[in-house]
Design a protein around this nucleic acid. Structure first.
Lengths: 215, 215, 215, 215
DNA sequence: TATGAATGAGGTTTCATTCAT
DNA sequence: AATGAATGAAACCTCATTCAT
């Protein structure tokens, strides 16, 4: 109801035992969140599933929201790390190759824990101070824009900031929806290729050749 | 959490006064939802804002979720109606003209009540049995696919179902994000044109001319 | 732990039934407070004793402390009312008669619900914003000082503010301690007379005659 | 609330280091009690402020109440010691000189740690089994009565027990209230003199001369 | 002896829903 | 039909205390 004051982890676990506790709490939160949804999840249940007492949960997370937030942070960091890694690996690749690699990486990332990702995106209420998701978007846009700037000579759009914005949101939405609604479409490369076409044709002047003729 | 037996409106309001009551409850729900979020909204507060008693609220909506669902229904119907109208109006228009009109329509639709739309998209899908939003997506895809089929001769993608899927999600995501994060970009036509380019270049072979030279 | 935001009653009961509920909650609070002490009192128990549900308690009192505060307010108002009444009744009495009447009134007031008064004074923590008790002291001092000013010609102390301060605290302490530790001493008039002597001899020059010779 | 079996210190600290630990725990308790009040004080916090672990705290104090009680004991012992010392020093002094010295000593004692004393008096009596404070009162009354008996020839009150009772409570209340509410009044001797007058005029027949003419 | 992680009973509070008026 | 007082299950969270290391 009211903005909750404490959203950040309460203390760093110092001993190995404590780190294991924190880990088990986070994993239990995931499981409960996926199974029961955000509204169905409650701290007593999470603690029970984690095999610890509520007290231990509150020793490390000062509120239910801080707990969820920590999970979101972890998830965002994973996603961002994956994206950054792919961008840096595509340093010298052509736009076509890099884009296709990136789209496949996104599909892969979403496919890792699709149910968890769904909960993250669909159910986690936008708690006050929950800007991590927005931050992640901003960083993703920055990464993409940096990449586009290196290739700007070949690009059609003049406003690269706007282009990054559109590309990031379009790819995220398509990837996310596909994982949830068309999981079978992940097997053959059609989905990945079509998303890549969406991006490349938007960015490049002229037609975009199919992947085999480029690679 | 609780048995969720009743999700549909309890009775149709017959008299004008009753209809006014229902209307004020729905509007109050909107306001509270936008201001406090789904978790912060409670039926007593909504009734208070609506200027009626909780008892009256429960006379027309058998549960909190039925109430929220009625609002979502209303909103989806509006969006779908708007889309259907544009598709039918674009019956004889070129793909270019129709797409640009559609994108502008979507931006317009999202701009009507952006905060409410945000709550709808971000917070409400998590209610169990809330497939209305998914239904809306499905219907939107059907409408778009019908449209694409009429223009299939000019289209590059072979799999029109997949194409509709991508177009609908990409446009929705871009439109939604733009309304919330780049509200100033709505003034000039740049944003609308870039989203249109995203769609058209994906769909059509060859380059896409700017709007003025086509219209 | 932290200053609690809500210390004031939540709503005024409008219907007779609601007023009865509030009344029974307040009386139950008294009983539980006396029996279990402040730390032993809990809202579920109070509600149970009151014969209502916790929900009803929280409908009228937004927090445990607000509930206790309401009781303290009520008690302070009673005490102050009693004092004011006696002061006004002693309008034309001599200092000796008025003082003796006042001391007897104080003893009487403390004896009404000695256990409750003890809890009030000894156990109710000084919650932030709990200045009602201090306010009551201030008002008592004001009443006494007004009275002293009317009799200033006969008084020894020059600083009437200080005199009021000392008289109020000395009488309150003596009365309070006597009720709790020497309840038997209330029967004969010795205690009342000695407290009166304490006050009168402090205030007046020369000796103070016993009551019978004055009245 | 809970069974309150253990109220006494668990063991005597033998080594210097252990004594230092106990000392730091007691001082931390003081600080936390003054800053947060009895309800806000918790053993984990106290241990943290003391710079030791909770485990160490429980090594020396078997319960929270034993800890607080040790502090109260310490405080009472200090006060009683101070009073006893003054009484013995006033062995041969006149009633007037002894009383004035005693009142000044009380004011001085209260002024040492006024905030701590406030917490002691206002918040701690509510702990069950806390008769130390009452004991102190009883001992104070005994000391005073012994003193009065030595001077009984000059005294007006016949019931010296009652007189001791009133004098002790009146002086304690006046002193305590003055420290908290009129701290500035401590500078000049007016306050001390007026309290002394309150006592002396109550005790002695006839008027009481100002201090300079007596000493 | 010291540490601090872990415990869990029990407290406060909320809010969807019911029902007497 | 409308009111709003009443309900109570169930959530969140604290903190005195224990105990493995």
């Amino acid at each position: 109801m009211v903005a909750r004051a404490r959203l950040h982890p309460r203390r760093q676990p110092m001993q190995a035992r404590a780190q294991a506790t924190v880990e088990s709490i986070l994993r239990a939160t995931e499981r409960v969140l996926v199974k029961e949804g955000y509204d169905g999840a409650n701290t007593n249940r999470i603690a029970e599933v984690a095999g610890v007492s509520v007290g231990s949960l509150y020793q490390y997370f000062p509120s239910k929201e801080a707990l969820v937030m920590a999970l979101v942070d972890e998830h965002c960091d994973q996603m961002l790390g994956l994206m950054a890694q792919h961008v840096s690996e595509s340093q010298d690749a052509s736009l076509e190759v890099a884009t296709r690699a990136f789209v496949r990486a996104m599909l892969h990332a979403h496919a890792l824990q699709p149910e968890l990702h769904r909960v993250m995106v669909e159910q986690l209420p936008r708690i006050q101070g929950f800007d991590k998701v927005r931050q992640m978007s901003a960083m993703a846009q920055a990464l993409v824009m940096e990449f586009l700037q290196r290739h700007r000579a070949r690009l059609r759009p003049a406003n690269l900031e706007l282009a990054s914005f559109l590309v990031v949101y379009a790819v995220e939405a398509a990837t996310h929806a596909a994982i949830l609604e068309k999981p079978h479409a992940l097997q053959d490369g059609e989905l990945a290729e079509e998303i890549s076409q969406l991006v490349l044709r938007y960015l490049l002047a002229g037609d975009v050749a199919p992947p085999e003729s480029v690679q």
